[in-house]
Design a protein around this nucleic acid. Sequence first.
DNA 1: ATCCTGAAGC
DNA 2: GCTTCGGGAT
Length: 296
Amino acid sequence: MPNRLPEHAHLVAEYVEPYRGGRLTSGQVERFRRVVWSYYRAARRPMPWRETRDPYRIMVSEFMLQQTQVSRVEPRYHEFIARYPTVFELATAPLGEVLRSWQGLGYNRRAKHLHETARRIAERGGIVPDEVRELRTLPGIGPYTAAAVAAFAFDRRVVVLETNIRRLFLHGFFPDAQGVSDREIEPLVEQTLPERGVRQWYYALMDCGAALAGMVGNANRRSRHYSRQSSFSGSVREVRGMIVRVLSEHAEVPLETLERAIGPTDERFRPALEGLERDGMVVVSGRSVSLGESSP
DNA sequence: ATCCTGAAGC
DNA sequence: GCTTCGGGAT
């Protein structure tokens, strides 16, 4: 995180045109676009998944980036793509191996969902869908990721809205409003969306929104959908993470050994292990536990 | 403490 | 609508 932001970041922070409803004037659209592009030209963030056109690799990056910083994803993305260069390597790998590749990234269900999605895509010849409606049917792909894959991999002209873009529009067009719904923001995203070059435009929007995070208070707190996150330390998912980490270091672990590793007095152990089993990420057979799905 | 290119289950 | 789901950097 640079202490000194690029000059154009101030241009982004100073762009405020309170939105009064209706359609944006062509002048407003033009001014907004000028600020966004000028920032992007000066300070675009290069990322490996922005250099490829491979829909599979873009999809992998979108799974990894859900609730996870770019800086944390970057090294893991390289490792993952080196191990699973195409959707077929990923689809044919055992779930346990994929979970090990994911270890430390967090939200491990993303890995299971990505694996299952890869299997379904491989069954259909390895073609990643290019339509939001179809993408939405795949596990782990929600409203954002579906739109992101369509826009970034296929340059489809669809509305993409995530935390950086939301922050940018809240800051620029809803400076004083409270409890702003995404339904109010989406029309503005649509109206400022260019006819061509959709992918680069969204990269620019996200970089502008990310730049704002370091300068002004988080405008996303004025979103209707804003909610604080429950604390991690002391939570069940903390123990889930510990269990997955231990299991990823061994092929099979006796139940007692696993419990001792976590802390025999920790009453979160049972619910955590049962949750992981229910989610299909660990298998308890007899008195031993292993990562992945039950082998056929 | 806060938040990160969210999704699923209820 | 509300909760759960990781982990690390700040």
